[in-house]
Amino acid sequence: MRRIVRNLLDKIGYKDVEEAANGVEALEKIKSTQYDMVISDWNMEPMTGIELLKEVRAQPSTAKMLFIMVTAESKTENVIAAKQAGASQYIVKPFTAETLKAKISSVLV
């Protein structure tokens, strides 16, 4: 999935992308490097996307960081939980390059 997202990001013009295998690895990177945006899956081990989102929002230095959830979790309870946790946008799999581009553009405004 990371490879697909990276490929799509490259196609729509975002070349400076870094990957993390799971929430724990992502959090380590976020703590040590300044990023403009996080695009995260929900279903990861260890540390799910929603747990990562809560951690990001809990840290003063990253509390305002843009965070897009890209996931197959499409139940209302998931979407509401992500919104309440502070997700900037929510993309349901399967998605198109246009959807990814539109959601990124909407949060960068």
Binding site: S74, T76, V79, Q89, Y90, V92
Partner: peptide, 11 residues
């Protein structure tokens, strides 16, 4: 499961 449109409405 919700489609992208319904998710956007919630957001």
């Amino acid at each position: 499961g919700l489609g992208q449109g319904a998710v956007d409405d919630l957001f």
